[in-house]
Design a protein around this nucleic acid. Sequence first.
DNA 1: GACTCGGCCCAAAGCGCTTTGAGTGAATAA
DNA 2: TTATTCACTCAAAGCGCTTTGGGCCGAGTC
Lengths: 342, 342
Amino acid sequence: MNLKELSAKLNLSPTTVSRALNGYPEVKEETRRRVLAAASRYDYSPNARAQGLATGRSQAIGHVIPLSTKHEMVNPIFGDFIAGAGETYSSHGYEMLISVVEDDRAEDAYRSLKRRGVVDGIILHGPRMEDSRIPLLQELGLPFVVHGRASGLPQDYSWLDVNNRRAFQRATDFLLDLGHRRIALINGLETMDFAARRRAGFETALTARGLKADPALEVSGEMTEAMGHSSALALLDRPMPPTAFLVSSMVSAMGVRRALEDRGLRMGVDVSVITHDDALSYFTGGDDVPLFTSTRSSVREAGRQVAQMLIDRIDSPDAPPRQVLMEAELTVGRSTGPAPTE
Amino acid sequence: MNLKELSAKLNLSPTTVSRALNGYPEVKEETRRRVLAAASRYDYSPNARAQGLATGRSQAIGHVIPLSTKHEMVNPIFGDFIAGAGETYSSHGYEMLISVVEDDRAEDAYRSLKRRGVVDGIILHGPRMEDSRIPLLQELGLPFVVHGRASGLPQDYSWLDVNNRRAFQRATDFLLDLGHRRIALINGLETMDFAARRRAGFETALTARGLKADPALEVSGEMTEAMGHSSALALLDRPMPPTAFLVSSMVSAMGVRRALEDRGLRMGVDVSVITHDDALSYFTGGDDVPLFTSTRSSVREAGRQVAQMLIDRIDSPDAPPRQVLMEAELTVGRSTGPAPTE
DNA sequence: GACTCGGCCCAAAGCGCTTTGAGTGAATAA
DNA sequence: TTATTCACTCAAAGCGCTTTGGGCCGAGTC
């Protein structure tokens, strides 16, 4: 069933039917009701491509995901973020379009999406420092919102980020208050902006107490379970091992935890661990007192909000960019305790 | 730049330019070269919506993801599956369209995708037993491939599945060979088809040795870390606790492992654990001998193949449906050992 | 020389919608 | 009464592409 057929059934012109369906005021209420009834009776919805061609919009939002295993995106948080964003999209009549591309072809992907008119806007994931995709998107004139943000760019653009710096600073303070002095940082890849900010927070807290960050206690890499495990083992086997670990992801933290067991150490007693927790649906829940003390921030909620920001931006392209900083909660679990006396 | 403008620059008709671009034989080689050169020079690509409207195709594949936390899809494997499928799509010029919907509106979502002509095909995730979405998609005439399969349906449709039954049967045999007799099963939600098959494999292996499955040792639920943990604790605290666990997912297995530690038991010595491992990028790797003995099957590879099957199906809709059964590898790690003598 | 036949190329229709610009009849105002 | 407005409705153009159905021209055939 298409518009023409439907309007024939109604003895109306396609014009009127289209207007009735789209809520234009020029059509009599009674007529509108008739049209709506017929549409649902004949199970009609407008063809999205035709509608898009006529309006110049696609009602779709693009997410470009680089394929490389190096990238931090095809990872546990992906599903939750998408779920959050998807909620917002579907309540606003947008589709989510995901483009998986070779690592070095991300920019081409943006260009292509724009040229072919496939999407009305873009959500940018996993920004690196001085990320070149941001000026590119501005140049293309494609509305976008960044999940995270990129240091070192003069441009003004919309983003939503967790206050990573503050979160890790607080977590470090918490450990310092417990008497820990040798704290290890197991961070994400520090080309990623969030990782750099976390490290800054960590080091700021140390400096504020007159301590100096020990580079030997700072590790950065892709946040896998294995990486957490091997890094922690190496650190624990040092002559002066850390008494606490600050870890950038739940998955790596599980690796750290495994390393502690391997060395016969009790988490929360012999060694403390704080991790960042993205509140993933399948890791949380259950216990009254969580396993890990963590800096917690729901990536699903972030998805919802970023999507909403982008839709707003598409609706009013001339509004000034917006920035949102979400604060992470410092949630106390069973993985932290006073530093052991030496 | 659109077709008309480009053809004006070339002093050719839009017809010829379109044909040149799409590789039709009616155009002189030299002309085609000129067109191609101009297209790349002026950075032209056809507008996807217009192309779609004219051809009746959208060059997009739909994935409908129910939103409920109950569902097994917004979960760790999602990212990896999508990455695999996305690879295939982008090499064939398809976009991936993800629709996140309320749990009970999945069928509407399919109808709507079809009506509005948004996608050329569908990948069906997380089939339940006698899943009603399968007949629906057939009725709609929308090409589709199921990741997994659904028992109890008479229809013939395309699917790709892991041989879950065989995998769990082999894993159980492996444990039985090690002398284990009280084996617990920590399964996914058994409304899910794969979970039912895994249980069947488990019970078949037991029966083949004249043992009877003990319902008290079988748990099923959403595969979270917390669920693995609490289920395992409950089982370990029984008067006759299991000496081995067969677990349906890596995440739950980590919970099981935590429960073992809580009870001071050594995994692989006091208690054996086998888990299914979807070969997620962030959980594997690193160690020479993996932590868990597992039935392993790459969900990313599954994504690649399912996508390819669907594209083939779209290209030749009259070909008979295809079924692919992937065998899982039984990979020996450090989590299994002989049953302790009582 | 007339005729066919490829090889190339083009005009125009059509995909299904939105939107502009106009028209109609009825109600109100002058 | 005539003019003006208002509330509805419609015809037609246009979005950017593909595709059908020719058309033209030069080469080959008889």
